[in-house]
Amino acid sequence: MSAVPGARTVVRRGLAVFPLPAGGRVPARGWQRLATRDEAALPELLADGRNVGVSCRASGVVALDLDVHGADGQAVLAELAARLGEPWPETLTVATPSGGRHLYFAAPDGCTTGSVSGGRTALGPGIDVRGPGLRSGGYLVGPGSIVGGGRYAVERDVPVATLPGWIAVRLPCRPRGVMTS
């Protein structure tokens, strides 16, 4: 089954995509130059069963990767939101094969953040951040991709919301030109 329908969904939400190897999640060198929002290019870009990646830099997004192995990132984020009296973020959401979630947010104006893994943000364990960075930026495996027999799928097809302030203040968000990632 092709990753094109899932890629089409995120492209229509303003995200830029690029090819990943069939069954894989690690891009080839130069993937950043292939990122596109051109829906007509998707069938060729994702031919031969290729997976789809979403470029955070080309898309202008910060994404939260809520893991469920080890610490449960979804529970950690829900607990933080409840403690602060904030609602669960209503934004484009992709379910991962492991039961995790990818939440996409528009990066705040004049601010950038690099990618941070291993719960090293003030958001807590089980929450990885993929950001636009200053050079190549981070990426996530996109919907329609199949890795290890499991499929990434759009779970909540809603507009990409602006990164909520209660999340942004907990990220290493700095004015452009300050970060090195």
Rank of each mutant, 00 (worst) to 15 (best):
Val4Ala: 10
Gly6Phe: 01
Ala7Trp: 13
Ala7Glu: 06
Thr9Cys: 05
Val10Thr: 09
Val11Ile: 11
Arg13Val: 00
Gly14Val: 02
Phe18Ala: 01
Pro19Gly: 02
Gly24Cys: 02
Val26Thr: 14
Val26Trp: 08
Ala28Arg: 15
Ala28Tyr: 06
Arg29Pro: 15
Arg37Pro: 05
Val52Glu: 05
Val52Tyr: 07
Gly53Ile: 03
Val54Asn: 05
Ser55Arg: 03
Val61Thr: 15
Asp65Gly: 04
Asp67Gly: 01
Gly73Thr: 14
Leu77Trp: 05
Leu80Asp: 11
Ala81Asp: 11
Ala82Trp: 02
Pro87Val: 06
Pro87Phe: 02
Leu92Thr: 10
Leu92Tyr: 08
Leu92Ser: 07
Cys111Trp: 01
Cys111Met: 12
Thr112Phe: 12
Thr112Asp: 11
Thr112Lys: 15
Gly119Leu: 14
Thr121Asn: 13
Pro125Asp: 15
Pro125Gln: 15
Gly126Pro: 12
Asp128Lys: 10
Arg130Lys: 15
Arg130Asn: 13
Gly131Ser: 13
Gly131Val: 09
Pro132Val: 10
Ile146Met: 06
Val147Trp: 14
Gly148Cys: 06
Arg151Asp: 00
Arg151Ser: 12
Pro159Met: 09
Leu163Asn: 13
Arg170Gln: 03
Leu171Pro: 15
Gly177Asp: 00
Met179Tyr: 00
Met179Arg: 12
